[in-house]
């Protein structure tokens, strides 16, 4: 068996503190999917094939609400638009890597490893072992995520409806949103998107959701520009 690249082991070590955040999030996601009536096999398929927590929670919420299939897929796509940004910004670091390695990185490209990867290599992009580091980061996170989602599914299916666990999905989404709200432009984006979604809820095909995304992004960008102009 070939020895692991030192950067692989470094990646594994860097991932360990993150598991404290990934594990509970996986648990909550599993519980929410079970409470939303998604069968265990389908829920695990989501967890392994999609492997992006926010979109899984969003899809769960919309499945509970009985939204049409097309709307659910669109909503997950919009939630995951940030992945385009990740893909574009990590690309220069993997310039010399063959396609199959870049496809492996693609599958495992989630928020936490992305952030850690850029922290480590942002200042020295030519350092060796970047792929190995990313894989080292991703393996423990992947295992932890799948195990805790499975545990959450088990727990969620055992607990009776009086626990109101279906409310876990919006609560976990709140927990994901709030850390973004550290700048005024972000708060403007979230507040205006939330208000639009509430007011436009009656629109057919949940067009309110897409409308809210557009309004929120526009409000965020307008606020950013306005604050920038005032500062200069």
């Amino acid at each position: 068996m070939p020895a692991f690249h030192p950067e692989f082991r470094h990646g594994v070590r860097s991932s360990l503190p993150l598991l404290i955040a990934v594990g509970p999030f996986g648990l909550v996601t599993g519980v929410a999917m079970a409470a939303g009536g998604i069968p265990p096999l389908e829920a695990m398929a989501m967890s392994i094939l999609i492997y992006a927590g926010a979109s899984m929670l969003a899809a769960t919420q919309l499945i509970v609400e009985g939204a049409p299939a097309m709307v659910i897929v669109m909503a997950a796509f919009i939630v995951n638009l940030r992945l385009f940004m990740y893909s574009a910004s990590i690309r220069p670091y993997l310039a010399g890597e063959p396609l199959h390695r870049r496809l492996i990185v693609s599958y495992a490209l989630v928020d936490n490893p992305y952030a850690l990867f850029l922290q480590r290599f942002g200042t020295h992009p030519d350092a060796p072992g970047k792929f190995d580091y990313f894989v080292g980061l991703s393996v423990p996170i992947w295992l932890c995520w799948q195990a805790t989602v499975a545990a959450g599914l088990l727990v969620g299916h055992q607990l009776p409806a009086v626990w109101k666990l279906e409310f876990a999905a919006p609560l976990a989404l709140i927990a994901m949103t709030v850390p973004f709200l550290r700048e005024r432009a972000m708060i403007a984006a979230a507040a205006s998107a939330g208000a639009t979604a509430v007011l436009a809820h009656g629109l057919p095909l949940r067009l309110g959701l897409a409308l809210a995304a557009v309004v929120g992004i526009a409000a965020g960008m307008a606020t950013e520009r306005w604050l920038g102009r005032r500062a200069s």
Binding site: A54, A58, Q61, L62, A75, I78, V79, L81, R82, F84, M85, A88, F167, P170, L171, L173, I174, M176, T177, F180, L181, A185, M186, A189, A190, A191, S192, A193, G194, A195, T196, A197, V198, H201, G208, L209, A212, A213, V215, G216, I217, G220, M221, E224
Partner: peptide, 23 residues
């Protein structure tokens, strides 16, 4: 586009949970 994408998570996630609380 990069600038716009920064606001996607906060905006879209809020658009999903806000109606759950307010309606």
């Amino acid at each position: 586009l990069k600038q716009a994408l920064r606001y996607v998570p906060a905006a879209v996630l809020t658009a999903i949970w806000a109606p759950e609380l307010m309606l």
